[in-house]
Write a protein that binds this DNA or RNA. Sequence first.
DNA 1: TCAAAAGTGTTAGAGGTACACCCATGG
DNA 2: CCATGGGTGTACCTCTAACACTTTTGA
Lengths: 234, 234
Amino acid sequence: MHTKNINTHRIEIRDYFMAAISVDCVIFGFDENELKVLLIKSDLKEYKGKPSLLGDIVHPDEDLETAAYRVLRDRTGLENVYMEQVQAFGGINRHPAGRVVTIAFYSLVNIQHSELKTQENELHWHSMKDITDMAFDHKDILDTCYQRLQAKVIDQPVGFNLLPKKFSLRDLQNLYEAILDVKLDRRNFRKKFFAMDYLVDLNEEEKDVRHRPARLYKFNHDKYNLHHKKNLGF
Amino acid sequence: MHTKNINTHRIEIRDYFMAAISVDCVIFGFDENELKVLLIKSDLKEYKGKPSLLGDIVHPDEDLETAAYRVLRDRTGLENVYMEQVQAFGGINRHPAGRVVTIAFYSLVNIQHSELKTQENELHWHSMKDITDMAFDHKDILDTCYQRLQAKVIDQPVGFNLLPKKFSLRDLQNLYEAILDVKLDRRNFRKKFFAMDYLVDLNEEEKDVRHRPARLYKFNHDKYNLHHKKNLGF
DNA sequence: TCAAAAGTGTTAGAGGTACACCCATGG
DNA sequence: CCATGGGTGTACCTCTAACACTTTTGA
């Protein structure tokens, strides 16, 4: 029985086993009507050439979120993006260099605003449906983050973070269809979004399309936090 | 720019900053129609006498879940209980002994089956509504885990784990009312649960109650994973 | 016979789903 | 004028919410 431990008794922390802490960022983007994720090539011999999430060790003076934002900023040039911690992954042999517990985050970025140094280890946007094997346990991390995103967009309007400031309802529907991997009814989709008050009509239209141009909208940030589930399922 | 890191290049892990990894368990129980949580007294001088979650350092040969189950077993004597990882907490100064990143889990146990060594640092079940301040950042961890539990019971039938094998519909409703902190309509509640096929009528009744005895049910584990949201909110 | 909680159905309203036609633009 | 996708309304159905009386037991 371990009745004396770091929560209950004064024990020197250096007497304990120590591990490295890292963060891994699942950076989602949306382009060409597909959900994409930003990956880099791993040079570790165990995973030579396989795609890897963007991550790094957490520094002594950083909390977890700060480290994750640092990774995101260094790789994409983006700040103030939507980010959410998902969970920790701590399998014993998940990293060949030793015990590394990683904390996974996902973030949603406007892919057009990102400024990648793509020559660096082939930093690229990958279509979600093309990703099979990855370095480390990163496929597992990616899958978990993707499921979290799917659950999230159903009850909170976070999807806007993936779109440009001005977008059409078709863009929005394509986004939801891509994230949830379903086909949605156009009329019902529009009805739903107009009923929630998230959309501001910009009185602008698409240009240079060879069909009737769509109206453009922006997201109403003021109403962001007003959407709640109306019933509890009971 | 940190372009060379543990995901992309071979670098010795010992060159990096190391931290201690712990797990903290939010162990929920249900008794006297109240949601309870199992806490212990901290002896650290910084938090002298304040209640603390049950936690411990993760050992070198354990993954995170294994460590959390170990803590749970050592403190309650319980095995095979429902447990879910919630998230990591890694604030820089969250532990006075140094950098300790903790992974929070919550679990749902049948409070009657637990065998506590209650003399050990006053290990006790606390009513959720009586808990104010706690040691470390444990109040924050507890709140986060409680919110996760509330969200979970709404779309999956995990609540059964908190009840004895045989229970009445009143017990079940009391449980949901306690977790969600709402009053529910009795008839609608019964209708809802009978419609899902989770309940098996045991053809038994309560005894020694000074009112009409309630029928007893058990949970149908076979149908556990068949319950899904019927619509996506779209 | 009384107190206490168990058990039971119906109705109105809200929200979800399915579905077809005309409109505006560029080529 | 044609091809392409934009924009719109209605009917049905399911699920939710609100609500009151009778039944069974122990004391």
